Simulated scan of single mutants.
Amino acid sequence: MMPDKRQPPPSLSLRRLAAELRHLRAAAGLTREDVADKKGINAATLYRIEKARAKPQKRTLIALLDLYEATDAQRTDLLAIQSGSHDRGWLRPYHSELFEEYAAYIGFESEARTVRNYESLFIPGLAQTEAYAYAVVKGVLPTATPKEVERRVQVRVERQALLTKEQPLRFWAVIDEAAIRRTVGSREVMRAQVRHLLQLMEWPHVTVQVIPFAKGAHAGMAGSFVHMDFPDPADPELVYVDTSTGDIFLESEVEIRRYKSMFEHLQAVAEGPNDSVELLAELAEARD
């Protein structure tokens, strides 16, 4: 038997570094060929760096940061990742008030092709109304300042632009009925939230399924998770798990298979999309 010569998946920190360099180059309005002309960095080498297939040397990274006019904060974070001293990820200045893991999640989500999200207690963030998001953040983070709450809500709402861009994110959500039944904010907030879900379900790239209480125990009761894949097949899939002790990213093949299988099981247990529409419509009417 021939040995398996496949390259191991890149580390999460290397993927974060690659993603940030892609964003910085795009923000500077430069192509890879432009970078090659201006800095003498081979376009093929830059491609490998931006796809997390090669770790840039420190001098190469500094040259790129100079060209992209990176801020001091960006330089500090990205050089720390390059040196291996900042394995917990990076923070873009825009998200500097957020937890590192959440900022990293936003970065990966913005580049994903498909997001599959199971939620047991909340409406998924990509489907939340602003009023619902405000009530959730305020309730989950009771010690947060009004500014922190406002910032988190703003970021959550702006994430939803992924569903309306020219090539929208494909979004498949499975939600436990508990998330629909729980009154977050007020009856009016929940009525508007459920109606918003129904509107989203009219879009061809959005699918929502609900697991009714009557289905009893199911695999998702262990907790919520997100599975995402990316347009480039060379980019390994990711699973994100939000826990009370911190957020976790999983990328090994064994872990990916386990969560993909779990999501397929939840899809089978849940009501189909059409029946879920009927259930949500009944819940919306019940709150009138």
Score class of each variant (00 low, 15 high):
residue 4 D to K: 14
residue 8 P to Y: 13
residue 11 S to V: 05
residue 18 A to F: 09
residue 30 L to S: 11
residue 37 D to L: 01
residue 41 I to P: 00
residue 46 L to I: 11
residue 46 L to E: 12
residue 47 Y to D: 13
residue 51 K to T: 12
residue 57 Q to E: 06
residue 58 K to Q: 01
residue 70 A to G: 02
residue 73 A to S: 14
residue 77 D to Q: 15
residue 78 L to H: 11
residue 83 S to A: 14
residue 88 R to G: 00
residue 92 R to C: 11
residue 100 E to H: 05
residue 100 E to T: 11
residue 104 A to G: 15
residue 104 A to K: 10
residue 106 I to D: 09
residue 112 A to V: 05
residue 118 Y to V: 02
residue 125 G to D: 15
residue 126 L to G: 08
residue 126 L to Y: 08
residue 129 T to W: 07
residue 131 A to V: 06
residue 132 Y to P: 08
residue 138 K to H: 12
residue 145 T to C: 01
residue 145 T to I: 03
residue 150 E to M: 01
residue 160 Q to C: 10
residue 164 T to S: 14
residue 164 T to P: 07
residue 169 L to S: 06
residue 171 F to Y: 07
residue 172 W to D: 12
residue 176 D to P: 07
residue 177 E to H: 12
residue 189 V to D: 03
residue 192 A to P: 13
residue 194 V to S: 06
residue 197 L to W: 08
residue 200 L to Q: 15
residue 202 E to V: 06
residue 205 H to Q: 08
residue 205 H to S: 06
residue 206 V to A: 01
residue 210 V to L: 04
residue 215 K to M: 05
residue 230 F to R: 08
residue 238 L to H: 00
residue 246 G to N: 06
residue 246 G to K: 05
residue 246 G to E: 04
residue 248 I to G: 00
residue 250 L to F: 03
residue 253 E to F: 01
residue 275 D to W: 06
residue 285 E to D: 15
residue 285 E to A: 11
